[in-house]
């Protein structure tokens, strides 16, 4: 209890890490709901890995003498962001174009991209003679060491993402649910798809840098899965998923701090705990409803 109070104090040493992981937990599921609904869950696996490969590539280039932004810590972060955004953006473009063409096996393409991204990440790390340890830290995500400036930048960007996701929910829903209907209503499916993919790219790129590929995948997919059985409409789906993600991040932070465990994996385990609870509760609720309906049947 005393440790919980310590964490909640305004002067808590790791307060940026606490609030940062909470922001990630609340916002990522807002984007992740569309991964689930559009049946693009595998994108959630592949894109963080691609983003990690982008970070590794940027650092490798720097190590090989392409030191365009070398030097201070902030510049290294910028380098990582550029690598992450470029790789993620190009991959989304490739996947989206292939999806629209509708040829080939979608899962196969994503699987191949994932394997390539993973292999490339390892190779880029191996080729990077300088700063391997620091880069591995970035790849795993270093939210505990997040600086004041990075925290505020993250807050601004993820805040904007949350606003866009809520404000344009109708449009994203329409083009995801019934593309033909969207066209007959005069809506440009391409424009809304591009906006959604841009948001996905931004979320994944920044998320991977902040919490690492494993955690970003966990936050994108697991809270929406936990929320889906209880959702009654898009708004409730987004809100429940977001609350579940935020609670997982905060719960994960508490467990990580008190038990001295790595934050990311603990947060993902807590989210999976919520998922298991959600499924169990849903099964119990369905059984209870079935029993009630059975007892309410008139006697023949």
């Amino acid at each position: 209890m005393s440790q919980l109070l310590e964490i909640l104090k305004p002067g808590f040493l790791l307060h940026h890490a606490l609030y940062g992981s909470a922001v990630m937990g609340f916002v990522c599921p807002l984007v992740g709901v569309y991964f689930l609904l559009r049946r693009l869950v595998f994108w959630g696996v592949a894109l963080p890995q691609v983003s990690a490969a982008g970070i590794a590539c940027a650092f490798m280039l720097q190590g090989l003498g392409w030191s365009m932004l070398a030097g201070a810590e902030t510049q290294e972060k910028h380098l990582a962001i550029i690598g992450s955004v470029v790789f993620t953006g190009l991959s989304i473009l490739f996947l989206a174009v292939m999806e629209r063409r509708g040829k080939g096996v979608s899962e196969g393409r994503i699987g191949a991209l994932y394997a390539l991204a993973w292999a490339a990440s390892i190779l880029f790390v191996a080729w990077n003679a300088a700063g391997e340890t620091e880069m591995l830290g970035l790849l795993k995500g270093e939210i505990v060491a997040i600086s004041e400036n990075d925290f505020h930048a993250m807050l601004d960007i993820f805040g904007l993402i949350a606003v866009v996701m809520f404000f344009f929910q109708r449009e994203f829903l329409l083009v995801s649910y019934d593309r033909d209907m969207a066209v007959t209503l005069g809506r440009s499916v391409l424009v809304w798809d591009v906006l959604l993919y841009l948001i996905v790219g931004l979320t994944v790129s920044l998320g991977v840098m902040t919490v690492g590929p494993l955690v970003i995948f966990g936050f994108l997919v697991v809270p929406p899965m936990a929320a889906l059985p209880w959702a009654r409409g898009m708004m409730s789906f987004s809100i429940i998923a977001s609350l579940c993600g935020g609670a997982s991040a905060l719960g994960g932070f508490y467990v990580s701090y008190t038990k001295d465990l790595p934050l990311g994996p603990v947060a993902v385990c807590v989210a999976c705990g919520f998922l298991a609870l959600s499924w169990l509760a849903r099964a119990a609720w369905s059984r209870l409803k079935g029993r009630r309906a059975h007892t309410a049947l008139p006697a023949v």
Partner: peptide
Amino acid sequence: ERLDPIYPLS
């Protein structure tokens, strides 16, 4: 049948 039943819509 074209509309995906996964969407939690009323």
